[in-house]
Write a protein that binds this DNA or RNA. Sequence first.
DNA 1: GTCCAGGGCCTAC
DNA 2: GTAGGCCATGGA
Length: 230
Amino acid sequence: MFKNRIGTMNDRKLLMSIFNKLLSHYGPRHWWPARTRFEIIISAILTQNVSWHNAKKALCSLRSAGLLTPMKIISSNHDVIASRIKSSRFYNEKTKKLKTFCSYLLDNYNGSLNKMFSKDMEALREELLTIKGFGRETVDSILLYAGKKLSFVSDAYTARFLIRLGLIDKSFDYEDIRKYFMDNLPKDLYTYNEYHALIVHHGWATCKAKPVCGECVVKRYCQHIKNLTP
DNA sequence: GTCCAGGGCCTAC
DNA sequence: GTAGGCCATGGA
């Protein structure tokens, strides 16, 4: 029954209304907080299942060692990279992922992100998803934040957010949620960029704030949604 | 000491 | 197909 509601005017208005509420409540998040496209991609890997704080420490360590180029990452010894990214947790696995991506970039696009991102978005998405260690969230983050492509990023926060609002149920998987946003949001990079960042920030903030926050945006909208839903 | 943070892969059932 | 284990740091 929920899936039939995709694309209704209510959903579109509601999503933008929630977006504006989150934006005015938390302010713009300015994602992705890295200096270059390559750094965004590297940090998308480093931040897998770890707080941004720890991922950033690992990124800065690579940067200070002058290792933030595809060639440097490939040519450096595994242990050298691993020791630099220990703070990002699972450093052995992540070292392999960094090397795998850099090899892919050099082999397929001569190391050029311009060439890589000039490819059709969905084709590139499918291609990136074949790289070991690159799941949907990581790939969509890379497409949106590094490639400036209209690929909405979903995650556990996003699913929980929509379920709490009553807009979807638990049968929605990652692709359903991505499609839900992409079908109902304006085709606008700023909105895609900030919406995901705001949901993550909101998830983090409400988690830290305990369930007593009287100003909780979601709670107010839960009631609002209940009034709208038949 | 315990919990959890901006995942994804692999294996057993 | 899916639940659960694995990876194994650092801050609160």
